[in-house]
Design a protein around this nucleic acid. Sequence first.
RNA 1: GGCCCCAUGGUCAAGCGGUCUAAGACACCGCCCUUUCACGGCGGUAACCCGGGUUCGAAUCCCGGUGGGGUCACCA
Length: 483
Amino acid sequence: MSVRVRFAPSPTGPLHIGGARSALFNWLFARHYGGTYIVRIEDTDLERSSRQSEENILNSLRWLGLDWDEGIDVGGPYGPYRQTERLDIYSQYAEALLKNGLAYHCYCSEEELAAEREALMAKGELPRYMGRCRALTEEDCQHHEAAGRRPVVRFRVPAGEVVVVKDIVRGDVSFECSDIGDFIIIKSDRIPTYNFAVVVDDHTMVISHVIRAEEHLSNTPRQILLYNALGWDIPEFAHVSLILGKDRSKMSKRHGATAIEQYQAKGYLPEALVNFLALLGWSPGGEEEVFPLDELKQQFSLDRVAKSPAVFDLEKLNWLNGHYIRQAPLDQLTALAIPHFEKAGYLSAPLSPEKYQWVKMVVASVQKHLSCMEEITTQAKIYFDDEVQIEGQEAQEIMAGEQVPAVLRDLIKKVSVTISGEIKENEAKELLKEVGRDLGLKGKQIFMPVRVALTGSTQGPDLNQIMAILGRDGIIRRLSRWT
RNA sequence: GGCCCCAUGGUCAAGCGGUCUAAGACACCGCCCUUUCACGGCGGUAACCCGGGUUCGAAUCCCGGUGGGGUCACCA
């Protein structure tokens, strides 16, 4: 049997962390087995779905590097891939169910249903549909139709059966039919509900494995009932545990950034995010933690997926992202950094080749310090503002040193003679040494005052790099105020 | 509340009955490297939820408890 899996987001907002991980697991599984990966849009919630969210989600998937073989934009042999474009397919199967008596029309109003739910809850019972319209006659129906009522289609849940979900990660999980009320498969506006649409789609799209989050586990018995009623084979299921926030409840907005696009905007690298997400609920078993996408693809398997939920740990993501930033080519990082600099007002749009080279040096000097690109504006601030603020008591004390004016004056003098205005790192190193020799000073006595005078801080990038980036004029400008 | 799932350090996790005086990673702490901070290297602190079984032997299997989570819509 060939592997065909799908990621089926509903376009009601951006792609979330949890959705991204489901997408990733499906993608990895498909690519590992040389199968087909499908992205299907589940837009049956007319109220909340939008084309903009669709585009958003697809963009996030592309950004993560999860390409698909079939979908709304690339087409495919089992389309359409948007549920609202498959309405006649659903009604065809709903009709079949109706004809067999496996489903029936229900005319109860939402108010009536709400009242029923409340009554059951008041009695301490499970709120569910009690089957009032289960045995409506043709006459009853006409009566309701005449009164202007529009029916929903309900599935007739067989009595007394036990449904067993065979799950790759969880094993066999059984559910009693008596706990499941007759559920709606077609809403009164003729739109199918989720449970019905997924079954029809997964079957007609020949999906072999349904890999999704655990929150769907309790829906699965309903879907299995539908597969049985329609006489269809049941796909393999794999329910992956949820991603939790720091307080161990389902990841949500109050836990911080949940949308992939937010991480993109903050300057996380897709390979870091993918690596991190893969390790949340799955592990290859070895001691290695760093896996680029194609290595994940080789190693991935569903039987190494964890059953227990995982807490989203931003610290680890930051570490991984920093790791990938340190490995990234400078040109790539520079391209990512420029928008952040522009946003901070440090740079404006078209950069001359000279300026670009200079920005590259700036990026290189802070590369090791970054855990995400967003941080570059604060890390590299020192290069863009000649109005140096001396920060902290330690820095103040350093500048109060009696040798300081002489050191800085001597350095200005040495820097001034540089003809081109450019100072290479090794030249900077040499100049500082000479200052030391001239004044008979060593180490900290010269390096710290220069560092503080140049940047305002006792810590930061390599001093020689700082001097190279500032150049002759920059150094003189910043040093002059101390003499 | 009913149903369902889950349970190894603060977090992610390896472990599938003996090799566990329990890997690895993040975080934390120390040391080294270093003209600062980082990066990197080395080392350290820190865990099998509890109670019963089964077994010669249990982190690993079973039962119960406790705790956490999910789900109970004409949302998906």
